[in-house]
């Protein structure tokens, strides 16, 4: 899933401090799972903002709503009828949702309420970690199912670097060295010999470097 983290409330206040009618819009997908932008977080943020404006002696209307998704036309359309009631929307969806909202509702400011962080997993409640950087050409088959692009600080394809110490990365002793994990996994798969296959130069044009990407699937287009 896409993992996000709450933005500091001061940052959100700074954006909306002059508005009088505000919609806090959550998303029922990834940001709900990572507890940054679901219905619960919408409620918490709305209450905190109401409290803030009350203390400021300002009358501000703050509404709450959570959509099934903010990355699909169909769900974003659900708020079309009410959009003109608001001066601004604070979207707690990932950056994708915020942008899709902004594209759809040209004349209403949409502010991000979370920082979109990475593609990752819930290791345990309250701990999410990165697993993928969407490089566009998956090489997991060659690296024992562990991604050196997202999990190695230097994204080395033929690692580990010289800084790997006791299974940990040179940048921090709490970060696993991706290449230690790859080696361990290759051994568990009885494929340790594969370690010696040189991984060729990466074609980064499928990644961010190639510019904004798209996937076109004619077979599913109507």
């Amino acid at each position: 899933m896409i993992v996000a983290d709450k933005k500091p409330i001061e940052e959100i206040i700074e954006e909306i401090k002059d508005d009088e009618k505000i919609l806090i819009l959550g998303c029922n997908e990834c940001v709900t799972v990572c507890e940054a932008g679901g219905k619960k977080e919408v409620g918490i943020l709305a209450s905190a903002l109401r409290m803030y404006f009350l203390n400021q002696g300002k009358e501000v209307k703050i509404d709450e709503k959570t959509l099934e998704r903010q990355c699909d036309h169909e769900y974003l359309e659900e708020i079309r009828d009410v959009m003109d009631q608001y001066d601004a929307v604070v979207s707690l969806a990932c950056g994708v949702g915020v942008q899709f909202m902004a594209e759809k509702y040209q004349s209403t400011p949409v502010y991000p309420g979370v920082n979109t962080c990475f593609l990752g997993v819930t290791e345990e409640r309250g701990l999410w970690t990165e697993r993928c950087q969407a490089c566009g050409q998956c090489i997991l088959a060659r690296t024992g199912g562990i991604c050196p692009v997202s999990r190695c600080a230097k994204r080395v394809f033929n690692g580990p670097c010289g800084g790997s110490t006791k299974g940990k990365c040179e940048i921090h002793n709490e970060i696993d060295c991706a290449w230690q994990l790859i080696v361990d996994r290759l051994k568990a798969l009885d494929r340790f010999d594969d370690y010696e296959n040189l991984i060729p130069l990466k074609d980064w044009s499928f990644e961010r470097a190639g510019g904004p990407r798209k996937v076109v699937r004619e077979d599913v287009q109507q």
Binding site: P160, G162, S164, G167, C177, Q180, Y195, E196
Partner: peptide
Amino acid sequence: FADPFEIRVPRLAK
């Protein structure tokens, strides 16, 4: 001297 030691020779080979 970096870890894991067991790949230090395979790494040289590589």
